[in-house]
Amino acid sequence: MAALTPLLKARGLKRHFGGVKAVDGVGLDLGPTGVHALIGPNGAGKSTLVGLLSGRITADAGIIEFAGRDITRLPAHARVRLGIAYTFQVTSIYPRLSVEDNVTLAVRHPSGDVTTAARAALARVGLDIHARQIAGDLSYGHQRLLELAMGLALTPRLLILDEPTQGLAAGEIAGFSALVRDVARDASVLLIEHNMDVVMDLADRITVLDFGRVLASGTPDAIRKDRAVQAAYLGA
């Protein structure tokens, strides 16, 4: 995999809020497939970094390349069209529209059958039986799945999942993990996650952030053995 050019390449990313260095010179490489997890204590800069990658926050400094193209100055909606999908940490759906309409909005190929594509995305997360329901009436867990279905319907090359298992029941997490593994076969997944069991189960690579900087980056085994990571997490 090292021989391939990475799908996404970030170098020297910086973003300060007032005096706070939320992201302070971060570099990141994401391959064309597989799950890359982003972990770190609260306030380590995970959300800001993801905001920079998705374009919801503009960088003070640094470069982001996606599929060989400089996207540092590209607005968020244009990045989505290039294939970077983002699912919100706090569920963000259209509560007054039907479940199917929610997903249909995400389907973007004008020539193909939009309804079939939307149904397929819903079926993948197991929500197809709820297609006609008003999205706001769904349970919280189902709303998280709808959010994921919208991400899938975008047919992204990079899917960013911001704390996707938050508030899910244990049974739901198992199904979710299987789905992410499936997606990661032909797309890149960047996973921000607090649940270490999920991270260790899914991730091919892990990057640890602390105080806006990369503390360590490597395979799950390497990260588990890393002293600096242990220190940061155990507070030693």
Binding site: S92, I93, R108
Partner: peptide
Amino acid sequence: ENSERTRMLGY
């Protein structure tokens, strides 16, 4: 209905 969500769907 939801401007920010719509932006993150590429519009």
